[in-house]
Each structure stands twice: as structure tokens, then as C-alpha cells.
Amino acid sequence: MKKTHWYDYLWIWAIIYFALGFFNILFAWLGMIDFLLPLGFAVFGGNKYFCNHLCGRGQLLARLGGKWKCSRNRPAPRWMASPWFRYGFLAFFLTMFGNMIFQTWLVAAGAASLREAIKLFWTIRVPWGWTYTAGLVPDWVAQFSFGFYSLMLTSLLLGLIVMVLYRPRTWCSFCPMGTMTQGVCRLKRMGKDGASEKENV
């Protein structure tokens, strides 16, 4: 029997995070933890400890698709874990992240007004105004919340779709954070023993 750790329950945190966004959009900022921690582990520790143990989303997908049997459990198409797709999706995701930052900057500079809506799959605008009381914080802080929550919810939905269609953690095979942190780890190990693809043993 495997020992259970406190971090094995972080899937509950993932549910709480997305639930909070339905009540107060400013909680979206907490999602920055999921952005900064994995990068921190990769850059300073040279590992994927976050993906391996702390990712609430990965745990939620594993639980939903595994224990709770919401997945067909079929292998995903091979291209989904191929480098060109993974790095392509990472580039796309970062571009969209950059666009979101740009929108936040426009609002901060007074060149655009706050839009109390989230965008699903980068195209579908969904009114989300009930989660924010105007004037509570500077407009750009709220704009970032709406934009960031859009990214988080979109990626969760993508994760859930591929979880149902393929294996529970199929999202992990092209998760931008996973691709980025693995890339950082590989760069850190470049030229060192024990981490070369050539030693494929």
C-alpha cells in the first residue's frame, strides 16, 4: 500500500480554485501559484516536482478519469505527445498569455475599458460580471483576473475533453507548463550524464 501524503489531496484545491472564480473573479490571481511554482522547481531545482506531486489539475484528471471512471482509457493519437505539437501548443499558449497581458496593460493605461467577461477557447465570450463589483480594485487588476481565469478554465475544459476521449492525464502530454518545465530541465541537464535521450535504456 502506497503512503498517502498531504499533497495527494491537492485535487481538492483545483476544484476550490475554479469554484472561487464563480463567486469572486479576483481569486483568479491565486492561479499564478500554478504558473510560478513549476517554473521555480524547474529553474532552481532542475526537476518536475510540481507536475509529479503538486499539480492539482493533474490529480483531478487522474481521479476523475481513473477512480471515478470518466475516461475511455484509450491511447491518445501519437501526434499529441510529439515535440512539434507540444512546443507549438506552448507557443500558441504563450502568445495568448502575452495577448492577455497586453489587454491588461491597455486597461491600466486607460486605452481600453474593463470587460467583465471571460473568453472560453479564446473565442467564446461569456458574461461573468456577477463575480466583480466595479471599483473594488484598480481596473487592470480585475482585467487580469478575467483574462487569467479564462486561460485557466479553457485549459481545464481542454483537459477534461481529452481525459474523457483518451487517458485520464492526456492533458499532461501537451500541458504548456509541463512542456516548458521539461524543456528547462533538459536545458539544465544538457551535456550531463544520465539525462540524454541517446541513453534510451
Binding site: K48, C51, N52, H53, G58, A62, A81, S82, R86, P168, R169, C172, S173, C175, G178, T179, Q182, C185, E197, E199, N200
Partner: peptide, 9 residues
Amino acid sequence: RSRCVACGA
């Protein structure tokens, strides 16, 4: 190793 994404599943 050429395909592993190191997710830890």
C-alpha cells in the same frame, strides 16, 4: 525517453 513527458503519472 524521446516521447516521455515526465509528468509522473
